[in-house]
């Protein structure tokens, strides 16, 4: 299917991406070509076919709920762009 520049902007908003106007046009062309190719899937009869999300069948991997050693707080915070002694810091959310 074709995808309009407006739809690209909507999807970009969902994905939390900012696109320049010039890029929107190009991306809608490229995505349109890819989606047109993907529409090929409609040639396959999939009525009564179960979808596959994982190729290897496994049931849930449960474990006992025990206390283990984990990353120390300082290590968990070590790559943060902004932090204080105990927390990740983000721009003010509530005015």
């Amino acid at each position: 299917m074709k995808i309009t520049p407006e739809e690209v902007i909507h999807v970009a908003n969902l994905a939390r991406l900012d696109l320049d106007e010039a890029v929107v046009e190009k991306v809608s062309h490229q995505m349109g070509a890819i989606l047109e190719y993907i529409d090929k899937l409609n040639e396959v009869d999939t009525s009564h076919v179960q979808p596959t999300t994982h190729a290897i069948f496994l049931t849930n991997a449960f474990r006992d709920d025990l206390v283990h050693e984990h990353l120390e707080r300082n290590q968990a915070l070590c790559n943060a762009p902004q932090r204080d002694e105990t927390c990740f810091l983000v721009p003010r959310i509530i005015g």
């Binding site: 899937l41 396959v44 999939t46 076919v49 179960q50 979808p51 596959t52 999300t53 190729a55």
Partner: peptide, 10 residues
Amino acid sequence: KASQVRTRIM
């Protein structure tokens, strides 16, 4: 749809 075609491929 793609996940169903995946089943066919398997």
